[in-house]
């Protein structure tokens, strides 16, 4: 597991049914592209988060494939329509097989 990986998520706590809400996510990750060399001239192996998904009550909201050109600490902001109360689940997949997860509840009235 890459060092110092920490997901951060911002979801409104409450919303009205059918509202379109804004979700912001950020994960700290060095996103090593695999194209850089260290001070001895050796290639630094690629180590990035290659996929990010968000699900709401088991239904997929967004599924993103990430490539090496994405810079450090990837940040995503997107919108989702919330028909009912439930839980957003966020999942990040690392090149090394690690999976980082976060979730946030939202109450819909």
């Amino acid at each position: 597991m890459a060092k110092g990986v920490k997901p951060r998520v911002k979801v409104p706590k409450t919303a009205a049914a059918g509202d379109v809400i804004t979700i912001k996510t950020l994960i700290s990750h060095k996103m090593e592209s695999g194209n850089r060399k260290d001070s001895d001239g050796n290639k630094i192996p690629r180590s990035i988060i290659n996929r990010f998904t968000c699900d709401f009550n088991g239904e997929n909201v967004i599924d993103i494939t990430m490539e090496p050109a994405i810079s450090t600490n990837p940040f995503f902001e997107f919108k989702a329509k919330v028909p009912e109360s439930g839980e957003f689940k966020f999942t990040w997949y690392d090149d090394d097989g690690s999976v980082y997860e976060a979730s946030k509840e939202i109450a819909v009235s």
Partner: peptide, 15 residues
């Protein structure tokens, strides 16, 4: 504070 990238490091500071 969410958009501010410094808070990634503040979180590490809390840890």
């Amino acid at each position: 504070d969410f958009d501010n990238p410094a808070f990634v490091f503040i979180d590490k500071g809390i840890d």
